[in-house]
């Protein structure tokens, strides 16, 4: 698992980058071409006039789709499939949402503060009927901060893998084994940053990890609030995978 030569590190990085590319919902060039395709006033109003539970259900479906791509990404990270099934589940349970948020920064246009959602770029106002403006603002701020780092696709791939493979997650059976995979991914990211002459990014990326934690706990807090208010929607209409991971 632990890369012993430069060639091994290159192979590890190449596998992670390939997995990232093959499991990304949208390609960078595709998104770039669509970057000025914005929702018009009527479309924004249609989202805003949805009820709270309708919009939550809609976003839960979109989020679940994104999580499924992250599961596929994880499967091709070298060493991931050698972990026990319990530990694979434990890592995805806590890490999948964080990787979705990292990936979201690829879908973000900093010039007009919009994110690609449902086929067009949407500002925070599109998500108004979720009734959790603080979470939406925090998520947009995070994407803005990530974009400011101007990461390459390779750097995003390695960082996503590092976010996922974290030996400090709860419920792990074999922490040591996860730690070994984590070290190899860390090695890969360090190698790529060194090659790109951007070693100073490592510190900034670790700062982003702390923000990801707080965003995920805010998401859970909002979900608890929603489930108390709309138990039927949360219980019967949310995608089963969303409930499994977050409820």
């Amino acid at each position: 698992l632990y890369p012993h030569s430069l060639r091994n590190i290159d192979e590890l990085c190449a596998s992670i980058v390939r997995s990232h590319r093959e499991t990304s919902q949208y390609r960078v060039e595709e998104l770039h071409a669509l970057r000025w395709k914005l929702f018009n006033r009527e479309e924004i109003q249609a989202y805003q006039s949805k009820s709270v539970d309708e919009m939550w259900q809609h976003c839960a479906i979109r989020l679940t789709e994104a999580v499924q791509y992250v599961v596929e990404f994880a499967k091709h990270i070298p060493g991931f499939r050698m972990l026990s099934q319990n530990d694979q589940i434990a890592l995805l349970k806590t890490g999948s949402m964080e990787v979705v948020l990292v990936r979201m920064s690829r879908l973000f246009n900093t010039e007009n503060n919009t994110v690609f959602f449902d086929g067009k770029f949407a500002g925070t106002e599109v998500f108004k009927s979720l009734a959790c403006g603080d979470l939406i603002t925090a998520v947009f701020d995070f994407a803005h901060g990530m974009c400011a780092l101007k990461l390459t696709e390779q750097q995003i791939a390695l960082f996503s893998a590092l976010v996922l493979i974290n030996a400090d997650r709860p419920c792990l059976e074999d922490k040591g084994r996860v730690q070994r995979v984590q070290r190899s991914v860390e090695f890969g990211l360090t190698h790529i940053l060194h090659r790109d002459n951007q070693e100073s990014l490592m510190h900034k990326l670790y700062q982003r990890v702390a923000v990801l934690r707080s965003l995920c706990s805010l998401h859970m807090e909002k979900l608890r609030w929603f489930s108390q208010r709309y138990p039927l929607t949360a219980h019967s209409l949310f995608p089963p995978l969303y409930k499994e991971l977050f409820a």
Binding site: V71, H76, N86, Q88, I89, K93, C171, L241, E244, L245
Partner: peptide
């Protein structure tokens, strides 16, 4: 965790293309 995360477990079991 496997018992409580049947869908995720299934997704992990599925062979990837």
């Amino acid at each position: 965790l496997k018992e409580k995360h049947k869908i995720l477990h299934q997704l992990l079991q599925n062979s990837t293309s």
